[in-house]
Amino acid sequence: MLKELEDKLHLEIPLTKYMQLKIDKMDETSFYTSAPLLPNINDKGTGFAGSLGTLVTISAWGLCYLKAKELGFDNCMIAIIKSDISYRAPVTKDMICQTLIPSKEQLHLLENKLKEKKSGSIKIESKIIQDDKICVEFKGVYVIKIL
């Protein structure tokens, strides 16, 4: 399913292909994506804020997509409705994004909303960490609607 998501992003959101965004892995607590620094560099030789913001936003969107599919909702629309990004430190290496998987309780609430109302929202957090330091912190609210 991870390769399917990466292909979908590259096809439907061309910027992700230009950024060379990769879907790396998912474990019990986190979903990981990455992008190399070179195609996402700014005039200071660090990660371009637009690329950093895109990586955390798309990673959270991707997690919503995967979780909706896991819950059995294949035909849905996912959109961000609110976000907050903090750029805490420059990124000087390839960008690695960790997106936290919501709790079982949060996912259960989302599943119930989708079944009952065909629409629901969920909060997702992502961060870009380099050398054990949080460089970018993201919190977003995504709405999922069953089509």
Rank of each mutant, 00 (worst) to 15 (best):
L9T: 00
L11F: 01
L11R: 11
E12L: 05
I13H: 00
I13K: 02
I13R: 05
P14S: 03
L15P: 13
T16K: 01
K17V: 00
Y18D: 10
M19T: 06
M19I: 01
Q20Y: 00
I23W: 03
D24M: 09
D24W: 05
K25D: 08
D27F: 06
D27E: 12
D27A: 03
E28M: 04
T29G: 05
T29M: 09
S30D: 04
S30Q: 11
F31T: 07
T33C: 15
T33W: 00
T33A: 14
A35F: 11
A35E: 10
L37A: 05
L38R: 13
P39W: 14
P39F: 14
N40P: 07
N42V: 11
N42I: 11
D43L: 13
K44S: 05
G45D: 02
G45R: 12
G45H: 05
G45Q: 07
G47L: 02
G50P: 08
G50E: 07
T54R: 06
T54S: 14
L55W: 09
T57K: 09
T57H: 03
S59D: 05
S59C: 09
S59V: 03
S59G: 15
A60Y: 00
W61E: 07
G62E: 12
L63G: 12
L63W: 13
Y65E: 05
Y65A: 01
K67Q: 11
A68S: 14
E70S: 13
L71Y: 04
L71F: 04
F73A: 01
F73Q: 08
D74F: 06
N75P: 07
N75I: 07
C76Y: 08
I78S: 02
K82Q: 14
K82D: 15
K82H: 11
S83V: 04
S86E: 15
R88S: 09
A89E: 12
P90E: 09
P90T: 14
T92Y: 03
T92G: 08
T92Q: 15
K93V: 02
D94G: 10
M95E: 03
C97Q: 07
C97H: 05
Q98I: 06
Q98K: 10
L100Q: 10
L100N: 08
I101V: 12
P102K: 00
P102D: 00
Q106D: 14
Q106S: 15
Q106M: 08
L107R: 10
L107A: 12
N112M: 11
K113R: 06
E116K: 15
E116D: 13
E116W: 10
K118Q: 15
G120D: 03
G120P: 11
I122Q: 07
I124M: 05
S126Q: 04
K127W: 00
I128V: 12
Q130V: 08
Q130L: 06
Q130E: 15
D132V: 03
D132M: 12
I134R: 06
